[in-house]
């Protein structure tokens, strides 16, 4: 029995589930929004999971801290063991970091927390909530099923929308950095510098995979750059420069098509056991 459907998990306080569902569906994958308290047997039938952005439990204690301890996460741990794709966006990324599903430095998932997402802070100075367009590039795209269609050192525009998006790594996690796929903030020329780091995150990290490559946690919002119409005209990017031509030609796909298509292909081709 195989499932080719994705579940977008709606936690109390999620607010990006519908646009995430729309992006996934646009790229050819059936997708349901399911609540955090859905029965485990129902959830197990899905071929993959997406944890959308928002403010689950109002970010109480720490962002993602409470959602990461809900019973539904047991289903995600099983899905991780089965190699199913799990994508966490923004608050979903924070939840995945609180579960220890990324980067999983040990051979077997140990539930140990290895990465923290904390307040945006540059040189010790809090810089508050960030809502802006950035660019990211991928390192080691072949290491994750989500990034395998991207090219390394390609500057991809993407918006950020978070107050706690600064990755802090444990020693174990830091040692994994050269072994997992990463998205790193960069400028429009794909250069990762301090100036292109919007929130003081370690090594310009915007997102990272687990060592097996089936789990990806990303702070920026790929679903908000999934369609060409979402790209602002003023961005210094080929996507902005060619936007009107593409729209006139009837094109709809945006810069993050590759991520959603990669997830679709994995679910449809690999046919992960449900």
């Amino acid at each position: 029995m195989y499932s080719d459907k994705i579940a977008v998990i709606q936690f109390p306080g999620s607010n990006c589930e519908y646009e995430t569902q729309r992006a996934i569906a646009h790229y050819g994958l059936a997708c349901d929004i399911v609540r955090w308290n859905t029965a485990a047997d129902t959830l197990r039938q899905y071929g993959g999971f997406v944890l959308p952005g928002g403010f689950s439990y109002q970010d109480r204690i720490r962002s993602g801290a409470i959602a990461a301890r809900l019973p539904i996460l047991e289903v995600l741990f099983e899905a991780n063991e089965a190699g199913k794709p799990i994508l966490g966006i923004c608050n979903g990324c924070q939840i995945l970091c609180e579960t220890g599903l990324v980067p999983q430095s040990q051979d077997h998932y140990s539930h140990s927390i290895e990465v923290a997402l904390t307040h945006n802070e540059i040189l010790g100075q809090r810089v508050g909530f960030k809502c802006e367009w950035t660019y990211v590039k991928v390192a080691r795209p072949e290491q994750s099923l989500f990034t395998r269609y991207f090219e390394a050192n390609e500057a991809i525009p993407i918006p950020i929308n978070h107050g706690e998006g600064r990755f802090v790594l444990s020693e174990n996690a830091a040692q994994m950095l050269n072994h997992v796929a990463l998205f790193q903030y960069c400028d429009s020329q794909a250069q990762s510098t301090a100036a292109s780091n919007p929130n003081g995150t370690t090594a310009n990290i915007a997102g990272l995979a687990n060592r097996r490559g089936n789990v990806f946690a990303i702070m920026p919002h790929p679903e908000r750059a999934a369609f060409i119409k979402q790209i602002p005209d003023w961005l210094q990017s080929n996507w902005a420069q060619t936007k009107s031509t593409r729209l006139t030609a009837g094109e709809t796909n945006g810069p993050w098509e590759k991520l959603f298509v990669a997830m679709r292909d994995h679910v449809l081709e690999a046919k992960v056991p449900a």
Binding site: I61, A65, E98, I113, E114, V115, A116, V168, S170
Partner: peptide, 9 residues
């Protein structure tokens, strides 16, 4: 545990 994230706090 939940109150303190030992990676950052």
């Amino acid at each position: 545990g939940i109150l303190v994230n030992p990676v950052s706090e």
